[in-house]
Every structure is written in C-alpha cells, then in structure tokens.
C-alpha cells in the first residue's frame, strides 16, 4: 500500500466535494477514479497533491502522514499530479518547462537540462524542444504535462484525464506508455472518462458520486454493479459500460 486516504472530507461553502472518502492504492498498480461530472474527482487530486487542505481525514503516502505537507514537498517526495486543463509555463520553452521539474532532484541546471531532455525524447516531444509551451497544439500540451510530471520521478502519478481531448490515434501511444510505466513499478491513479481505456488499463476502479465512494473493486465487477450504472448513466441503461 503506497497511498491511503482515511475519511477525507472537503467542502466548498455548502457543497460537500469530498465526504469521508477512504480508499487505498497498492504499489505498482493502476487505480482508476471514475464518476459523473461534479463527483469530486478533481478535488480528490487537489487534496492528495496538497493544493487544497481537507477539513478532516488523513492522507498517508509511502508510510508517512503527508496531510499537512505543502504541495511542492509532496511533489518532490514522489506524489505527483497532472492537471486536467493543462498548465504549462507558457513563456518557457518545452525544455525549460520540464527542466523546472527535473531540477527538483538535481543540483545544477546542467544536470536538470540533461535529465529533462531524456524525458522529453521518451514522451515523443523532441521536435518541440525549444518551442514556447504556450504555442503547442493541444495533444502536445497533454504530452508536456506528462513529461513534466515524469521528470519528478514520481512514485505515485496522479493523471487527471490525460486521454481527454485526444483523437483515438493519439490515445494509443499514451495508453501504451501508461502500461509501460506500471511495468516499471510506478503507481498510477487515473481520473478518466474514456471507459474502454479504463477497463483495459485499470487494476482497480474507484467510483465517486457526489463526493462519496459509491463502489470500489475490479473493473469487471464495477461495470456490472447496478448502482454504478445508475449513477453514471441514469436508469434503463444496463450494459452501457460493458
């Protein structure tokens, strides 16, 4: 077990974005988080990564309580997130974007540049190396988001809809890459709407609905769960997830 949330709650005014959420992620697995819009998926990521503090509950990462730890220290410790709406540093080149993250573990800028270049090549962004990040097309911005996260050498990588907005042709290499990362021992938590990909990749699926855990289990079991089908698609849509 590398990541564990215990009774984590977060409210925005009267809205309970997360309501006593408890779940565990095993090391080296892919854990998908699904749920209808507004279920609290992105809030869950913000709370895990330290961008927002929960009102109650604990977050344990790699054997330590990180609930009070600031975001940048969690990132350095290997608890790394990406953003659904990509957030590059627009004026900086692709290389500089990734160098910032690579520098978290390296002393000199030169070492960071070397590490960042390797990561960019792996992701397949080599052609854009010196282009300002603000000028990238949408698919490349998604790749950059992932490259910057990988440069931090994550133990747990929280991916917020990396497949959304990509064409089916662009999705395939991304899905292959995620499988490779798991094979290398990385733990992935995905917020994802692209169901076939979730069913293919995930070892476990967590279903959130209005801030609460609705169901948790293996993909096949989740797809058959009538509560999930109802919450997701409304009544009368039995096998839409299959």
């Amino acid at each position: 077990m590398i990541l564990r949330m215990e009774g984590v709650s977060k409210a925005f005014g009267g809205l309970r974005a997360l309501d006593a959420v408890t779940f565990e992620v095993e090391r080296g697995t892919i854990h998908a988080v699904i749920g209808p819009n507004g279920a609290g998926k992105t809030t869950l990521f913000s709370v895990i990564s330290g961008e927002q503090r929960p009102e109650s509950g604990r977050i344990l990462f790699d054997g330590q309580d990180v609930t009070a730890r600031p975001a940048h220290l969690r990132a350095r410790a290997g608890l790394v997130r990406t953003f659904q709406l990509t957030r590059p540093f627009p004026a900086l080149s692709v290389l500089d974007n990734v160098t910032v993250a690579a520098g978290a573990h390296l002393r000199t800028r030169k070492e960071a540049v070397a590490a960042a270049t390797g990561t960019i090549e792996r992701i397949g962004l080599g052609a854009y190396l010196s282009r300002p990040a603000g000028e990238l097309p949408a698919a490349a911005r998604k790749q950059l988001e992932l490259a910057r996260a990988l440069a931090l050498r994550p133990k747990v990588l929280l991916l917020d809809e990396v497949l959304a907005g990509l064409t089916p042709a662009e999705r395939e290499p991304m899905i292959t890459l995620l499988g490779e990362l798991r094979a290398e021992g990385m733990t992935l938590v995905l917020v994802e709407h692209v169901m076939p990909a979730v069913m293919r990749l995930a070892d476990r699926v967590l279903v959130l609905d209005r801030g609460s855990v609705l169901a948790e289990g293996e993909p096949a079991a989740i797809a058959r769960d009538p509560r999930v089908v109802t919450a997701y698609l409304g009544e009368d849509s039995d096998d839409a997830l299959a």
């Binding site: 990564s49 330290g50 961008e51 600031p70 975001a71 940048h72 990132a75 350095r76 790394v80 997130r81 953003f83 957030r87 590059p88 540093f89 627009p90 004026a91 900086l92 500089d96 974007n97 910032v100 993250a101 520098g103 978290a104 910057r148 931090l152």
Partner: peptide, 13 residues
C-alpha cells in the same frame, strides 16, 4: 516558472 503559474510550479516541486 512561478511567475507563469504558481500552482503548476508548486506541483513541479
């Protein structure tokens, strides 16, 4: 990087 996006910078360590 901090000037460009504080939240993303923190997420990048």
């Amino acid at each position: 990087a901090v000037r460009e996006d504080e939240t993303a910078a923190a997420a990048a360590g």
